[in-house]
């Protein structure tokens, strides 16, 4: 018990004095998280919208595929992305492995299904009268789609924020594709894994507190947007 209390005290002290190692890992986490969320949203939001609004062949299969991808273990994504990005892989020429960009690639693969499924649900749950009202008021097809999108905007923003929360707390992809290089690819989660293994429990706690704070603020923002 004393070990735990000491660990918490040490962790809090590190947070309060803004330990540079903790802040550096937090910065890398936020940086790769934001990039991955932006790229995943650019792909996932239109996919989710099309799946919710469109009626085309293979739609059901695409939805099942996306929903299945939600359960993909992150180490599997990491492994596959590693295969693609390694020197012998098809994308080896880009020389991305063990860079923040490699982590972003893996996190995008993780976040796209999440953004797509959440935004699809959000668009699909828009009141059916929205489309009909827009049509009868003389809206063009494009404006009808825009109106539905506008009505679903809070759900879509929540999908983006949920994706940010998810990618920020991910460890397997960051470890496998980033290589845990301090100040470069070491994120909060990979740092926690490393420091705990070294017996630096307090350091691990400090990193954990910052990570939780990031996720807490993200959820707070998401809740605020949904309530407004």
């Amino acid at each position: 018990m004393e070990f735990l209390l000491d660990g918490f005290a040490d962790g809090l002290m590190r947070v309060l004095r803004a330990d540079p190692h903790v802040m550096l890992a937090a910065w890398v986490t936020i940086k790769v998280g934001i990039w991955a969320t932006i790229l995943a949203s650019l792909i996932g939001l239109p996919v989710g919208f099309l799946l919710a609004m469109g009626r085309f062949r293979g739609r059901g299969f695409a939805i099942t595929l996306l929903q299945t991808s939600l359960g993909l273990p992150t180490v599997v994504i990491g492994l596959l992305a590693y295969g693609f990005l390694s020197r012998r892989g098809p994308l080896g020429f880009a020389d991305l492995l063990f860079t923040p960009s490699a982590i972003v690639v893996g996190l995008v693969v993780l976040a796209v299904p999440l953004v797509a499924v959440f935004s699809m649900t959000s668009v699909a749950s828009v009141d059916g009268r929205v489309r009909e009202t827009a049509l009868t008021l003389g809206a063009s097809n494009g404006l009808v789609a825009w109106t539905v999108l506008r009505e679903a905007r809070f759900g879509m923003i929540a999908a983006v924020l949920a994706a940010f929360g998810r990618v920020s707390s991910e460890v397997g992809i960051a470890m496998m594709l980033g290589g845990n290089i301090e100040g470069y690819t070491r994120t909060l989660t990979t740092a926690i894994a490393l420091e705990s293994m070294k017996g630096e429990f307090g350091f691990g706690i400090a990193l954990g507190v910052v990570l939780l704070a990031i996720i807490f603020v993200t959820n707070l923002l998401s809740r605020y947007i949904q309530r407004s």
């Binding site: 009141d127 009268r129 929205v130 009909e132 009202t133 009868t136 008021l137 003389g138 109106t147 506008r150 009505e151």
Partner: peptide
């Protein structure tokens, strides 16, 4: 040219 006012109209956000 023709607009329908539904029985339970929907108002946009």
């Amino acid at each position: 040219r023709v607009t329908l006012l539904a029985q339970e109209p929907y108002l946009f956000r």
